[in-house]
């Protein structure tokens, strides 16, 4: 979602027209070599984005076939749309709570496996990573059955306790419930990023720390964590983008709790339902673009802050 780099920079202005002819020839050949990439790039990346931007400038009325150019009206409407901001705030809360929990768990798991004190660390690595290999749709369905409060694990638990102790699909619980599914799915993925970063920390750093008398905690705080700062920033940015694009989990749990999860529960669900239920393709494109821009800005800010500290 970040800005697209221009693949080939414009040539610097040549000093004399006589030389221009000679200098241009090799450049043309260069274009020939990058052409296959550029064509595919333009077709699958630039064209859809340009088309979405183009769509967002119109308002089509599907029932009477009228399409009118409305300029930036759709953007003004999105910025003043309470439903959009409600969904945005929801994923923001989700982001602020779920991402730190998930990354912390992933970090602890990575440090534990890397500590070389764990028996069968390879087994734990695979098991923690396994949920990531389960397709998100299947994961959400599976958790849906676990959460079911008429039959399902939640119902059994309530029966056992003799009262309505847990209600994962109720209005108060649903966001943490979704957070739980997402955490379960992505802890392993983030653990793998941290673990591979830990693997490339040079061994002599540990030796030096040991000679200096550093204990385990000291080594983690002063050697390991600073060494994997880059990986943490990357994982954070991926998680931010993932949170803002939250879609699969709420959309599938919606079939179980349609009154709790609205059609505009997350910005992506809002865009999806606008186009596929309401046939408001133009407005839907606008929502997607606005959300993309906001995501890009926040991800960029995090990246800036993350790398500044690292220097």
């Amino acid at each position: 979602m970040t800005s697209i780099p221009v693949p080939v920079e414009a040539p610097p202005a040549p000093p004399a027209p006589a030389r221009r002819v000679r200098r241009r020839r090799p450049e043309r050949k260069g274009w020939l070599f990058v052409a296959p990439f550029l064509v595919v790039f333009a077709l699958v990346f630039l064209a859809p984005i340009a088309y979405a931007v183009w769509l967002s400038l119109f308002r089509e009325q599907v029932f009477f076939g009228g399409t009118e150019f409305v300029g930036l009206d759709n953007y003004a409407a999105v910025l003043g749309d309470a439903k959009f901001w409600e969904s945005f705030l929801r994923v923001l809360v989700f982001l602020v709570v779920q991402v730190p929990v998930m990354l912390l768990l992933a970090l602890v798991a990575a440090l534990a496996i890397d500590s070389a004190r764990l028996h069968a660390s390879g087994f734990f690595r695979v098991v923690i990573f396994l949920p990531y290999a389960v397709p998100g749709v299947v994961a959400a369905l599976m958790w849906g059955f676990i959460y079911g409060d008429n039959f399902g694990l939640a119902a059994d638990l309530n029966d056992l306790l003799g009262r309505q102790a847990v209600a994962p699909l109720s209005a108060d619980w649903i966001l943490p419930s979704i957070g739980n599914v997402v955490t379960w799915e992505f802890v392993g993925y983030n653990m793998l990023i941290f673990y591979s970063a830990l693997k490339v920390v040079p061994g002599d750093l540990y030796e030096a720390a040991a000679i200096d008398g550093a204990g385990t905690m000291r080594t983690i705080l002063s050697v390991k964590l600073p060494a994997i700062r880059g990986a943490v920033v990357i994982a954070t940015i991926f998680s931010i983008i993932g949170s803002f694009q939250l879609f699969n989990e709420p959309n599938i749990l919606r079939t179980l709790a349609p009154n709790v999860i609205s059609t505009f529960y997350t910005p992506n669900m809002y865009a999806y339902n606008l186009s596929f239920a309401g046939q408001q393709y133009d407005y839907s494109a606008t929502v997607a673009i606005v959300m993309g821009v906001i995501t890009a800005i926040i991800a960029y800010v995090v990246q800036l802050r993350g790398s500044r500290k690292g220097v």
Binding site: V44, P48, Y51, G136, V182, G242, N248, E249, Y281
Partner: peptide, 15 residues
């Protein structure tokens, strides 16, 4: 939370 799936769907629509 698979962004690719959603994008793929959007791309199909765009196509």
């Amino acid at each position: 939370m698979s962004p690719t799936k959603h994008r793929a769907r959007a791309a199909v629509t765009v196509a």
